[in-house]
Design a binder for these strands. Structure first.
Length: 104
DNA sequence: ATGCTGACCGAGC
DNA sequence: CGCTCGGCCAGCA
């Protein structure tokens, strides 16, 4: 069991209608500076239905450059379906949908 | 152990 | 406001 496993556990804690940044996940795993590892962890092991990697975005609120499930458009559709709001620029509204990481 | 890589983040120009 | 650079940390050859 490596750091990746901890990442998946943290991502699964993200509630619907909310999104978290890679840095946020990294913080929950105990490695606030390991945001890059978080991204790569989801990239190499995107468990469909188990780890909602579509709820994980970068600090800009923008979706990942390479989404494992198909593409940014697919990710955006799933987030909209869950109730996540988007800005005119096509970014996630972090102000309302930004997960504190400690609400639950 | 060393070096390279990577879905990042923050600061600087 | 947009791009570039360095730092950070885990996994792999």
């Amino acid at each position: 069991m490596g750091f990746y496993q901890s990442v998946y556990e943290a991502v699964k804690r993200i509630p619907e209608g909310k999104v978290a940044t890679y840095g946020q996940i990294a913080f929950l795993t105990g490695r606030p500076r390991a945001a890059r590892i978080v991204g790569f962890a989801l990239h190499v092991n995107p468990f469909p239905g188990k780890v909602p990697c579509h709820r994980v975005v970068n600090r800009d609120g923008r979706l990942a450059s390479s989404f494992a499930f198909g593409g940014e458009e697919v990710q955006r559709a799933m987030l909209l379906k869950e109730g996540v709001r988007f800005t005119e620029s096509g970014f996630v509204d972090m102000d309302k949908c930004g997960w504190d990481g400690n609400e639950l």
